[in-house]
């Protein structure tokens, strides 16, 4: 089954980190991706720029509305995602628990929903 692991943390915690700690965290993430790739568990993933680079898009009555930032002020911000291939939720949770930022914030694990086949 495919699962997405969404990585959340408080950016303020990251901002307060020393440069060295931040670099170490990044290296740890790279090593994690390498490990999961070798196991055949890693399909895709990406870290994201901080939340202040975000723009929210809505289309209402045919009109496109753009606003700065995400919709709600949340305590933790989305920081990146992984697309994983795991046999079941237990394995997905185990993989997620080894994603480095799990120690700082939280990882939301969701099974993907396959869209129905295209209409003929």
């Amino acid at each position: 089954m495919k699962y997405v692991a969404l990585v959340y943390y408080q950016e303020s915690i990251i901002n307060a980190m020393t440069e060295q700690a931040w670099q170490d965290l990044n290296q740890e993430c790279i090593a994690g991706v390498e490990r999961m790739t070798a196991q055949g568990k890693y399909l895709a993933g990406q870290a994201l720029q901080p939340i202040d680079t975000a723009t929210t898009v809505r289309v209402r009555h045919g009109e496109t509305l753009l606003t700065d930032g995400p919709f709600a002020e949340t305590k933790e911000q989305l920081a990146g995602f992984y697309l994983l291939d795991a046999v079941d939720l237990n394995e997905a949770l185990q993989l997620a628990s080894r994603i480095a930022p799990a120690r700082l914030g939280s990882i939301e694990v969701r099974p993907v929903r396959e869209l129905p086949p295209k209409r003929e």
Partner: peptide, 14 residues
């Protein structure tokens, strides 16, 4: 069913 919670006894280490 949808999240794929397996029907199994966890391994000894788990």
């Amino acid at each position: 069913r949808d999240a794929g919670i397996p029907y199994e006894v966890p391994e000894r280490t788990q």
